[in-house]
Amino acid sequence: MIFYGVVLVLLLLSFFSDRKKTFKALKIAWNRFSGILPAFVLMLVLVSISLYLLPHELVMKYLGEENISRGMGIAMLAGSFALMPGFIVFPLCGILREQGVPYMVLSAFTTTLMMVGVLTLPVEKQYFGIKTALVRNGTGLIIAVIVAVVTGLVFSEVVL
């Protein structure tokens, strides 16, 4: 994995320039990681339960909804609650696209998936506080609607 290659190179560079600083960096890394760990665990618990209640295949089935505004609503709700890595989401969206699901609905889904995180709230509120975290997520929802509508216009799925 390239990422760990980069981490290792930087860590070695740091170590040979200044050992003391490097140990301090590792200590900071550990302290911060262990500080946020309980919130991460809570998030993982929520993810594991929600994935059981709403498996990926089911979400994808619901996105195929005929009515476009209902499809949008479902897409945004699902996108806000789900936590899926890009390498799972986009191949599935590509399949849905071929089945005729509008770009607009897929854009609403992927944008909320990226910007709105109900399941990551336990982590987010540790840094931002619950109020700011909610405002930030609300803003993400609004942005997703705008992105989806513009996508719909560009692909001529809706007309003004």
Partner: peptide, 19 residues
Amino acid sequence: SMLKILPGAFILIGLFQVW
């Protein structure tokens, strides 16, 4: 999948912090 990323990310944060 998270453990694959988090340790590296926090090490980079630590290095950023000291350098």
